[in-house]
Write a protein that binds this DNA or RNA. Structure first.
Lengths: 148, 148
DNA sequence: CAGGATCCTAGATGATACTG
DNA sequence: CAGTATCATCTAGGATCCTG
């Protein structure tokens, strides 16, 4: 009867630190790509797989994942440089989880999008003419502007 | 041999829209809390469970989840108001996945944090005195300032 | 109690240019 | 190729005050 009083996710809980790493679009995609191929991938290849990511964001996300021991970065001192990324054991575990999310997202995208459309429809109704609820809610939504 | 050329996560892939919903700290926690208790929870209770979330962020996250059909919002027209949140079937599915992530995070926090410390240690070495790699990398890290 | 409306800023992201 | 460095931007999120 005290479930109303307990704190499930305490601020200082270490799990929060880890979650905040996984709760990242790019990190999710990286683990996904790396998890699906088990072979190490090069920076550029990785980037091609994750359409729309800038090299900066990708680099940053990779660094964070490397720092947290989820991704291994191997540098071959050749010229031109060759850097390969692969999952560590830890990363493979996490990757299984995030891949599950990506897969579920793909499988259920329609259900979600339908619900969303319905919700927006309702909102339009009782918002009358005042507006304010239109399409621009999320940042990432699938839009048409071409990848560049 | 063309796995190097294929795009795994296309920009217009609907899954990306869904992932961007789940790739959110607060959404993850909400699904987690709601998933663990199967009973509907009130706004304030929910908020207590997720330490550190502001009412704004919580409201926003809940709205998005409701919009996407993952969370059900029930309003009781009493005074004072009573609003309860619970998972839909869709939300329960997603919740299972995100809870898995939260659990894994909790279970492996040490491994991650250890790797992180090691990485930062190395960085400190070859950064010499120049600095720039210290503790402030991530936003969420467990800090000491009290919840308020 | 459960938010809505505002104001404001740190940090995330994008665009661009440069380099070992 | 695989970044690093910079500058401009943008906005999610925090702090506050208000209300049905």
């Amino acid at each position: 009867m005290d479930t109303d009083m307990r704190v499930t996710y305490a601020k200082d809980c270490p799990s929060r630190t880890v979650v905040s790493v996984l709760a990242n679009k790019w990190a999710l995609y990286i683990l996904g790509v790396l998890g699906r191929n088990d072979r190490p991938l090069r920076f550029t290849v990785l980037r091609r797989h994750i359409e729309g990511v800038t090299q900066k964001s990708l680099t940053q996300a990779l660094r964070n994942l490397e720092r947290d021991g989820l991704v291994r970065r191997t540098v071959y001192p050749t010229v031109p440089p060759r850097v390969e990324y692969s999952l560590t054991d830890l990363g493979r575990e996490a990757g299984a989880l995030t891949t599950a999310i990506a897969d579920w997202s793909k499988a259920n995208a329609t259900r979600v999008l339908t619900a969303r459309a319905a919700y927006d429809g309702r909102a339009d109704d009782d918002t009358d003419g005042a507006r304010g609820t239109e399409g621009a809610r999320h940042t990432d939504g699938a839009l048409g502007t071409d990848p560049r």
